[in-house]
Design a protein around this nucleic acid. Structure first.
Lengths: 109, 109
DNA sequence: CGGGATCCTGGGAGATACTG
DNA sequence: CAGTATCTCCCAGGATCCCG
């Protein structure tokens, strides 16, 4: 995966963000609207706080998610997609459309 | 990632196939047309034969790729997307469209 | 509540050598 | 040419405990 990242190969740039299995699902959840940490953790049933934290940090670094912490008690942190993050909706919609169009029997293995 | 795989959550079904970094790129290559083993290996610069073999096997098991071996010398094996595999083009196009629309400066990290 | 720190596991992926 | 076999590395992800 070296220098064959041609202009028409935007797929790779997309894969840099949506690499792990959880990454895509987190974006999907945030596409609905801003979410608190625990809201995400609940919605993404099975994810560990550890993983969620790291994924969100990476998204912050890539500029597709903003983190807003409120100095309250109890603490409250809200994660939200940036305008750039919102543009991923096309990809997510395509993935979702594909998934629902596939009959279960079609997928062997 | 347990039983929250609702009908509208076809995203997960899609992620079962397009998990690793190479999986998506292999599909992208096969969307252009049938390819021989070495054609794939050359096009996907950097992939190892080991990885390519395993990814293709998994695609076979999931029914999105067919493997055709010709009993010749030298041997020739052709991989081709099934009709089901072809339907992934929508997802790939969306990913590509996103990738090319994103300015490099937008992606920090 | 929203994490950080630490340790551990599994699988994707690379390197190398060998075979039908 | 198209793999197979083995070994290793890396890292996403999980488990647990602890902190502000």
């Amino acid at each position: 995966m070296a220098d064959h990242c041609l202009p028409e190969c935007g797929v790779e740039r997309c894969l840099l963000l949506l690499d792990g299995p959880w990454a895509t699902l987190i974006v999907r959840e945030l596409l609905v609207g801003p979410r608190r940490f625990n809201e995400l953790k609940t919605a993404l049933d099975g994810i560990s706080a550890h993983t969620l934290t790291h994924r969100l940090k990476r998204f912050e670094q890539h500029g597709i998610v903003t983190r807003t912490a409120f100095a309250e008690t109890p603490p409250r942190v809200v994660y939200e997609l940036t305008a750039l993050g919102m543009t991923l909706s096309g990809v997510l919609n395509a993935m979702n459309a594909w998934g629902v169009s596939v009959e279960d029997e079609q997928l062997a293995g």
